[in-house]
């Protein structure tokens, strides 16, 4: 048999391995709830994920074993050659899976953001020393109380648009800090983000700066707790999935359960640099918040904070667990948005 023919059979097998592996990755993503690899939305029942994965494997097998008998029953790649083509198919399918998952995730987020933007009146703030978006209520009398918000590192300001819309509809202004660049997370520079935002809001006529709250997501929540501990102008804090302890900074597969591949890379970079979690010391500064009520919210399926740790937090702090939610996307959950608006109404 000619070398060329063997290569042809190898390539046909590679195509089969690639499509079967696409299904395999969907089965693994559903089984292990790997957000970074899932194509279907996370809230869709697992059986749909298994069905999608199995169908892809079955279709690829039907095509290969059902229609390529001439190639199958000719000498082709065996042993190490077989492993080479199979591994190449698996790796190519992994890259495709990550890219498709990322695209679909962004598409879903932008569709949701589009709806939220249509419901909000926002103003982009781009000063030399402060960047962010100010959301103002469309009705009611100014000056409005304000909630200052810090997103997770790497997440765009649009990630908090749902919370901002919820707050403006409840009569609060909301200011979402733009901390999308990794530079904003250098220590100690990150510590000035909240004070600078509050100073800016103090100068706005339509804002009542004597009624300020803070909301943060992930490391942004650690920053919000630290900011409130040092600035008593902040009346109340809501911390969404704060990292709290350096031990919660996970690596490897655990991250793909909670975030997309690029987010996992960014998370690792930010969390390695400067040991921000330890330096922000949110868990130590919680005790400085005597007069500033703190609500901590975690998704019940958060894979980064061990459940034993959550139990310990629950004994000492006001912690709310959201069923069926992980870490990422927690800020978009309607129950979380209503908890934030309720907490703000009660304490700001």
């Amino acid at each position: 048999m000619e070398f060329r023919e063997q290569i042809t059979i190898g390539v046909i097998f590679l195509v089969f391995a690639y499509f079967a592996s696409l299904g395999f990755w969907q089965l693994v993503a559903t089984w292990q709830r790997l957000k970074a690899l899932l194509w279907l939305p996370r809230d869709v029942k697992a059986r749909w994920g298994y069905s999608l994965g199995s169908s892809l494997v079955a279709l690829a097998s039907l095509w290969f074993f059902g229609t390529r008998s001439e190639e199958i029953f000719s000498p082709g790649p065996a042993s190490s050659e077989f492993l080479f083509f199979w591994s190449a198919g698996l790796a190519l399918a992994l890259v495709t899976t990550v890219v498709i998952s990322l695209f679909l995730d962004r598409l879903r987020a932008s569709l949701q953001g589009l709806t939220e933007r249509q419901r909000s009146h926002s103003e982009l703030i781009a000063l030399k020393w402060l960047r962010g978006t100010l959301y103002l209520p469309s009705s009611g009398d100014a000056p409005w109380p304000v909630v200052c918000m810090a997103p997770e590192p790497g997440a765009g300001i649009e990630s908090l648009e749902g919370v901002a819309v919820g707050l403006t509809e409840s009569g609060f202004a909301a200011f979402s800090l733009d901390m999308s660049s990794e530079d904003s997370w250098r220590y100690p520079d990150a510590l000035v983000e909240f004070p600078q935002a509050i100073a800016y809001l103090d100068g706005r006529d339509e804002i009542n700066a004597s009624r300020v709250g803070a909301v943060g997501v992930g490391l942004g929540a650690d920053l919000a707790i630290r900011a409130a501990a040092e600035d008593k102008q902040i009346k109340a804090v809501v911390a969404l999935a704060p990292v709290m302890l350096a031990a919660h900074v996970r690596s490897g597969l655990d991250l793909l359960r909670e975030m997309s591949y690029p987010e996992a890379i960014r998370w690792s970079r930010v969390h390695q640099r400067g040991e921000l979690v330890t330096r922000l010391g949110a868990s130590e500064h919680v005790s400085d918040l005597d007069s500033q009520p703190l609500l901590i919210i975690y998704g019940e399926e958060d894979r980064l904070v061990p459940s034993a740790e959550l139990d310990a937090f629950q004994r000492t702090m006001k912690v709310k667990l959201i069923p069926g939610q992980g870490r990422r996307g927690l800020e978009r959950d309607t129950q979380v948005v209503s908890l934030i608006t309720g907490w703000s109404h009660e304490h700001i």
Binding site: F13, F24, W86
Partner: peptide, 15 residues
């Protein structure tokens, strides 16, 4: 054939 069982074994291993 050289593909069916080896592929199944590889997929089980990868899982």
């Amino acid at each position: 054939n050289d593909y069916f069982v080896p592929t199944a074994l590889c997929l089980l291993t990868a899982a």
